[in-house]
Design a binder for these strands. Structure first.
Length: 299
DNA sequence: ACCCTCACCTGCACGC
DNA sequence: TGCGTGCAGGTGAGGG
């Protein structure tokens, strides 16, 4: 489902709702969600951990956890001894890395709310509420790693720079494009080259930049690279601003009608271009639908 | 490193 | 009504 702007909104909602909460139990109902780890090990690690922060890297959601400290039991320690033990048993930081893929959603529920269909993971929180991960198509994935190893986790290690950080510069884009003979549409969907776009925003960014999705990356002029760079940031920023503020975890996430109107080419085959009136075209390219205006977007 | 197709799944909209 | 087809916001594997 989501591209970077939608993931950003999910992250913000999670920050508001679950940071500071302790996970009292978890229930993984779909083994492949956390494969190859075992559900038992997964649940054991999560139990009694505290959610200390929520972050994002590209389209990955990072749920930062602090493990409980398991003090040895069955014996009594004097104060002095306990203090030393706690120092030795430093709380482990973990990260639950989540990718929503196409249809993954989080819901924040009251105990009396009915569980939705396709609820594949349930996290019971210390305020009686629960965080539910639902995913109709079962493409979503979760992985638990020590916080120190987030950067090196598979899928995250090779990601391109965050689009709003300084290292996603015109120079970076110039360098990246110059080394590729692929079409722009394909390259923009490659998260290791340009981060955050999906099928919708790649089409929208190219439309804004006035460049054909079929242009070869390495052929772009300096001027067009600069336009594309600005368009990528603009389209992501615009989407983050215009995704409805009313989106809540209770509802899950969906594109509202008001939001869809902002798509200028995506899903508009045959409609007149908002800039020039030409008919928007659609073609399958690299296995996905590509939408563009044949007049505004030249190769 | 690239390209392509297929795979992973379920549900919805469409045409007959 | 049903049944078949194609399509969906993402990515990874496997073959060339």
């Amino acid at each position: 489902m989501p591209e970077l702007p939608e993931v950003e909104h999910v992250v913000r909602a999670l920050q508001r709702m679950v940071v500071g909460r302790r996970i009292v139990a978890s229930d993984i109902r779909l083994a492949k969600l956390i494969a190859p780890s075992s559900r038992r090990a997964f649940n054991r690690k999560l139990k009694d951990s505290t959610i200390v922060g929520i972050g994002r890297r590209g389209k990955f959601i990072l749920i930062e956890l602090e493990e409980r400290v398991a003090l040895p039991h069955g014996r009594t320690y004097d104060t002095h001894r306990q203090v030393n033990l706690q120092k030795a048993a430093r709380k482990q930081r973990l990260a639950l890395i989540v990718h929503l893929r196409m249809t993954g959603k989080f819901l924040y529920q009251s105990p009396d709310d009915p569980l939705p269909r396709h609820a594949h993971a349930i996290f019971y929180l210390d305020n009686e509420r629960r965080l539910v991960f639902r995913d109709q198509r079962k493409f979503g994935v979760m992985k638990l790693v020590p916080a120190s190893r987030i950067r090196n986790a598979k899928g995250i290690r090779d990601l391109a720079p965050e689009p709003f950080e300084d290292d996603f510069s015109v120079d970076y884009l110039t360098e990246t494009l110059s080394r590729s003979q692929r079409t722009l549409k394909t390259l923009l969907l490659d998260q290791n080259k340009v981060l955050g776009l999906g099928n919708i925003y790649a089409a929208e960014a190219l439309f804004r930049a006035g460049i054909s999705p079929f242009a070869i990356a390495a052929d772009l002029s300096t001027k067009r690279i600069a336009r594309l760079h600005a368009a990528i940031r603009d389209v992501l920023k615009f989407a983050i601003l215009h995704i409805k503020g009313s989106i809540s975890l209770e509802d899950g996430f969906s594109y509202g009608a008001a939001f869809e109107r902002f798509w200028q080419v995506y899903d508009r085959e045959g409609e007149p271009c908002v800039k020039c009136g030409a008919r928007i075209r659609r073609e399958r390219h690299g296995g996905r639908s590509t939408y563009w205006c044949p007049r505004c977007q030249r190769r």
